[in-house]
Amino acid sequence: MAEKNYYTIDPQGKLQCMKCGVPLVKGKAKFMYLDNGFPVELPVCPVCGFVYVPEALALGKVASVERALEDK
């Protein structure tokens, strides 16, 4: 499946992983729901792999895709 560009959030070094003490970088992640998977790019900690889902994304695109899948 093609990567969804609209998921892309560039952390630009403003987000910091508190456990590893390094900035989050644009990294590869995957959303999974009801047996469906979506490759996306999100802010990720390069050391521990913490993937950040910002509030606006969770309540926006993620919520609408969830609803669409729930009605499948």
Partner: peptide, 29 residues
């Protein structure tokens, strides 16, 4: 998800909270 701060007295102050049902994981390669 919870957005919070640690106050000077050691307590936690919750500023925002949100949730999603999708699971999210780091993808290799």
């Amino acid at each position: 998800w919870v957005k919070f701060s640690r106050e000077g007295d050691g307590s936690y102050l919750v500023h925002r909270a949100w949730s999603h049902r999708m699971k999210v994981v780091k993808r290799e390669g």
